[in-house]
Design a protein around this nucleic acid. Structure first.
Lengths: 188, 188
DNA sequence: TACTCCATATATCATTTTGATATATCAATC
DNA sequence: GATTGATATATCAAAATGATATATGGAGTA
């Protein structure tokens, strides 16, 4: 690989499944991948150029001939697929979370408890909305789980559900503690 | 604030509690904050310079007089504390996670299931180690929870425990699915 | 005593990423 | 015919990452 640029791997992974434009890639990142990854146009387009230069992907068509909007569709090459597989087999993975919500809470002693409670409530609402979407995904996926490809998507969905449910339990407990109430919860 | 540079806020938050050097700040980030935040020297030292320039922090001493290693200890100013409080009260928080483990799993269809199982196992081991540390923190914190300051640290610790336990449940389920076993789990 | 490690401590750098913005086309709606 | 919003590519300043460079102090040891 030209470098350890993560966007390169995301693009190779997505292109291995279907041919896409840069814009399409952004939609996939903000769609299926958004529960565990993110990325912006500012890193997508430069990555596409460098991947093409290195022969790991190639343009399907210069532009859709005659009619229609100008569009650059990319396709993965054999060399690209080889790189993708090599990365998947690497034993080291870097997982990083940066939760501004938790950061604010950690420093919450500076302000009134109401400020922290508001921060948690905002977080709780976002999580509830995301969880609803994930549960819909799961429901639909249950019908097609026999196809191997769907299993991997299913696993990332259940990861989201499991962690988001944990977030919600924590939100509830944390708000009780900050509002001076005792926690009474059934054993698990 | 000079900008929406997140490292500025981390530094103000930490300095509000105690005077620190850049190196100390890095230790705090890699210690107590590491379950929900991260940061490197490459952003700490420039942030310290810009914060001092803006009068939000100041040097406690040019260097420890006569003996000892050269050291730059910083202290928060009244203006800095005001900025910190303003940030805490902001309603928007940006929470982002980038999990390479999940990314690899999402693209797992390209490789054998064993590759994905290895990726999960590696993740599982890291989580188990972190969870053990968090449980020790919690045990010690339970003794001093009457002091308000400790409550906020306690909440970030329980956040970690709750989510890491969710991760472990998911790891177990995911490995079973990938190795072709059925999941049998007690209801919660 | 001298030697070797390791933690402390500050700093910089190339590369990557972010988040915002600019530009333009196309389809749909009003 | 006008306006809006999705599609589509691209660039930019600012921020973050991860690595590396440099040097000191202390602790152990040969």
């Amino acid at each position: 690989m030209a470098s350890d640029n993560k966007m390169n791997l995301v693009i190779l992974g997505l292109l291995d499944h279907e041919d896409l434009t840069g814009y399409d890639i952004k939609k996939r990142i903000d769609g299926s991948l958004r529960y565990f990854w993110k990325g912006s146009f500012g890193s997508i387009y430069p990555a596409l150029s460098s991947l093409e230069e290195d022969g790991l992907i190639k343009k399907v068509k210069g532009k859709s001939s005659s009619a229609g909007r100008e569009k650059i569709v990319y396709k993965i090459t054999a060399a690209g697929r080889k790189n993708l597989l090599a990365w998947l087999s690497e034993s080291k993975s870097s997982n990083s979370l940066k939760y501004e919500t938790l950061l604010k809470l950690y420093f919450g002693g500076v302000a009134d408890n109401e400020v922290s409670i508001a921060t948690i409530t905002e977080f709780e609402k976002e999580v509830e909305a995301d969880l609803a979407v994930l549960n819909t995904y799961k429901k639909n996926l249950n019908k097609v789980l026999d196809e191997r490809d769907h299993v991997f998507f299913y696993l990332t969905v259940t990861f989201g559900i499991e962690t988001y449910e944990a977030y919600l339990r924590w939100c509830s407990d944390a708000k009780k503690i900050l509002s001076g109430k005792k926690i009474v919860r059934s054993k698990r």
